[in-house]
């Protein structure tokens, strides 16, 4: 196991519940991610994928249950982590300044120019971040997340609103990050993307994990009817 992964894995959620407005939105949910690489959280709309991602990242507190990383409770010994939102929130400053901000929070790390080069944004370094195209904005959001030097990276449908060329560029970046030993948890609706990127898939339905296994196996031979219907592109109600 590589050094980053040792600090992160296994990611364990036990008896996780989240309620809002009297409605149970998540759980009870148990999940163990012990494999490195990319884990995809999949499921129909409203299954609770993005909510689970936010719970794991610590953006919201669970109503009940525990989350731990490498045996240490979240909060105390949580690994360095970052999240890329579906709709990137960019600071109102230049592309390079967005990276510098994250870099300053991380207390240094890779040079801004190198980070921009990896994201293919060198030419846009001085441009206002919000004037970039959708694909460039999302690559900047990912590059900025990487400037935080995360050991664990959460991606919430990062290519949902991108065209195929921009999606491929993002996927190349994501695959490159995973190859560096950074654990990635990715929310996606896109079965093709899961097939291209994911090592394992946790399939969610109505706030619970109904199936979790290697990506190829789950897509081709899911055991639960909900996952089978989803991967067969049938409506899951």
């Amino acid at each position: 196991m590589r050094s980053h992964e040792a600090a992160v894995l296994p990611i364990e959620a036990r008896g996780l519940r989240y309620k809002a407005g009297g409605r149970a939105l998540i759980g009870p949910l148990d999940l163990t991610i012990s494999q490195g690489g990319i884990t995809a959280l999949m499921g129909p709309n409203g299954a609770g994928k993005s909510l689970l991602l936010r719970l794991l990242h610590g953006l919201i507190r669970p109503t009940a249950g525990t989350i731990s990383f490498s045996g240490r409770a979240a909060g105390d010994g949580a690994p360095r982590q970052a999240l890329v939102f579906q709709k990137p929130v960019l600071l109102r400053r230049s592309v390079a300044a967005n990276i510098s901000f994250a870099r300053s929070l991380a207390g240094g790390g890779e040079h801004v120019d190198d980070i921009l080069a990896e994201a293919g944004l060198t030419a846009q370094a001085r441009q206002p971040a919000r004037l970039l195209s959708g694909g460039e904005q999302q690559r900047l959001a990912l590059a900025r997340a990487m400037a935080l030097r995360p050991q664990l990276l959460f991606l919430d449908e990062p290519t949902a609103s991108l065209d195929p060329p921009a999606t491929l560029l993002m996927e190349d970046m994501i695959a490159g990050i995973a190859q560096r030993g950074i654990k990635i948890v990715l929310v996606t609706h896109d079965v093709g993307q899961a097939r291209r990127l994911a090592d394992d898939i946790a399939f969610m339905h109505q706030g619970r994990i109904v199936e979790h296994g290697p990506a190829g196996t789950l897509i081709e031979a899911a055991e639960t009817k909900e996952a089978q219907a989803f991967f067969a592109h049938r409506l899951v109600l």
Partner: peptide, 22 residues
Amino acid sequence: YSELFRSMRVPFHRRVPTLLFD
């Protein structure tokens, strides 16, 4: 910015100047 700040663990003493600048 609030969700981004919480996600990036931006400390309070950095939030005010960041917001003022932006």
